[in-house]
Design a protein around this nucleic acid. Structure first.
Ligand SMILES: [Mn+2]
Ligand SMILES: [Mn+2]
Ligand SMILES: [Zn+2]
Ligand SMILES: [Zn+2]
Lengths: 142, 142
DNA sequence: AATCTACATTATAATAATTCTAAACTGTTG
DNA sequence: CAACAGTTTAGAATTATTATAATGTAGATT
């Protein structure tokens, strides 16, 4: 199985030119078993390590936003100071570990389907997502 | 029923000095029928109008964060560019209208209780909140 | 293959949001 | 009222993000 070719086609498919930076970014983001969550800073480090050279911060922002617009990434905002991107772009729920600042996907089976009884007139529902904040359980530690 | 006295006591009760700025802020935030959602910018405008004079932006930030820490306010983050505060500090769900950028509370009765089947070892659940993004329904408009 | 052109990358500057600083001010205590 | 600690303030500093404009490159055209 070829490596980059997939990403070249993937990029071409949505009208993005397969540049060196974008292909590297694709490999860092999508060439793995499982989806994951990252911050812009995480990503800059990962790409620089992979490429063994600097990548412009502006390019990382531009490309992340391009990928987001094309549906390759989605943003998950925890609070005004903590924003993550997710390579899992399906609609899904999250645990957020307030001790480690780690974002963890919920499986489909972890939560019952959410039933919304109210609807806003003239509006349709685009997404329904749950955020479950967890933290270390210190009540039985004395 | 007295007006400010309530707020003076409220502030004292959590160890905050009842300064002019804080009392004004309390009146803007809590002296109303219903809870509401606001941004820092909204609030600065509301306070300046009420006080008929400038209030330092740093004071608004400081005081909002003091109130947040004391449990008078909670932050609701929509995405990295849209952060709101809520005078309803109970755990509750929201609709977010992507057309108007308006945040709307869900009533208790609008959503069934959410049942989480998974748990993270050693962690307890602090909150479970749902965000329902809605937008204008243009599919039957032709 | 050389040329062309639109798009992409880059370093850097600009902007926006938030926080810090240090001086002046004010609520509280005695 | 004196004294102190906490608060407000204007403005500076910091951080995150976006804009700019020169340079580089992918892909098409010859
Ligand atoms: Mn905050
Ligand atoms: Mn964004
Ligand atoms: Zn996820
Ligand atoms: Zn609310």
């Amino acid at each position: 199985m070829p490596k980059n070719c997939n990403f070249i086609e993937k990029l071409r498919g949505v009208g993005l030119r397969p540049t060196k930076q974008r292909i590297n970014m694709c490999e860092v983001l999508f060439n793995r078993e499982k989806t994951f969550h990252f911050t812009i800073n995480d990503l800059v480090k990962m790409i620089s390590e992979k490429m063994n050279q600097k990548i412009s911060l502006a390019t990382v922002y531009n490309t992340v936003h391009a990928f987001e617009k094309k549906g390759y990434l989605k943003e998950i905002s925890i609070d005004s100071h903590k924003s993550y991107f997710d390579t899992n772009t399906s609609s899904h729920h999250h645990f957020f570990d307030e001790d480690t600042n780690e974002l963890i996907d919920c499986d489909e089976s972890d939560i019952d389907k959410i039933n919304i009884r109210k609807n806003i007139p003239g509006k349709k529902i685009n997404s329904v997502e749950v955020l479950i904040r967890v933290a270390s359980d210190n009540q039985n530690q004395k």
